[in-house]
């Protein structure tokens, strides 16, 4: 493997590795007696934009943890780009092109924005154990700067992350997920707690993601989700409740009843 993949490499890899970015087979996850996920089957095509909807506790974050390997599923198989990764640790999955953001920002608060992004770029490249200081002209430093601009943080790139606003921290979460050459990104409620202005900025960022990158977006705001997604999965009580195009989901009577009913609870 040679440094970070460029886009042409990523695209050719994508074509060689089959049609699906992600295939889940009968995934379940138990926490003691609690069944957080039960028999989830889901596939996401390469380059597909997928939204996952569902009320609080439906199992959306647990599903992401099973895909990334943060917490292994109790049963079932996970295939990434055609390869069975069920037994691989999270970092190996990341190196294969998977990325994620966290529902509650998980950032290095003492480090600057650029240093956070540099770490993310380094994590999917070589020389992670280099006992040298990065040089001024380090290629990954340049990538970090490009990423800072891509998530609209160039003005605060030297600010310690702990001093950023909530919205900026959410943007940085996305920046970390865009490092290297991602092929599938899992966004866990990136819009949570954002003001309408920040929300618009977020939709901008999501829309500017290159089209060969697939993503799954967990989003409570149905309007946002239905606007950016090509396919939608509706989860309820750890199961897949409905799957379809945004139109189908929006006009589904059962979904409307369930979603509106839960929304106030």
């Amino acid at each position: 493997m040679n440094k970070t993949l460029n886009r042409a490499d990523a695209l050719s890899l994508l074509q060689s590795s089959g049609q699906y970015a992600l295939e889940l087979e009968a995934i379940s996850r138990h926490f003691g007696a609690l069944v957080a996920l039960a028999d989830i089957n889901l596939s996401v095509k390469a380059g597909e934009r997928h939204a996952v909807l569902g009320s609080n506790g439906a199992g959306k974050t647990t599903l992401f943890n099973a895909i990334t390997g943060d917490f292994a599923p109790t049963t079932g198989r996970v295939r990434l780009f055609g390869e069975d990764v069920t037994d691989l640790p999270a970092y190996e999955r990341i190196r294969r092109g998977l990325r994620r953001t966290y529902q509650i920002s998980l950032l290095f608060e003492n480090l600057s924005v650029l240093d956070n992004l540099y770490l993310a770029c380094r994590g999917v490249s070589r020389n992670r154990f280099a006992l040298r200081r990065p040089r001024r002209d380090d290629a990954l430093m340049a990538s970090a700067e490009t990423l800072a601009a891509a998530v609209h943080l160039e003005t605060v790139r030297d600010t310690p992350v702990g001093e950023l606003s909530h919205g900026q921290q959410r943007q940085l979460e996305i920046g970390l997920a865009l490092s290297g050459a991602p092929r599938l990104i899992l966004f866990d409620e990136p819009a949570a707690g954002l003001s309408p202005g920040e929300r618009a900025e977020l939709v901008d960022i999501l829309n500017s993601i290159p089209s060969h990158i697939a993503y799954i977006l967990i989003e409570h705001d149905m309007d946002v989700a239905l606007r950016v997604a090509e396919r939608v999965t509706m989860m309820h009580n750890g199961r897949v409740f409905k799957q379809g195009t945004p139109d189908e989901i929006e006009n589904d009577a059962q979904v409307q009843e369930l979603y509106l009913g839960d929304h106030h609870g």
Partner: peptide
């Protein structure tokens, strides 16, 4: 500071 995040950035913690 944050071993879980490092894991999900591709580092073998």
């Amino acid at each position: 500071d944050n071993s879980r995040r490092m894991n999900s950035l591709g580092y073998d913690v």
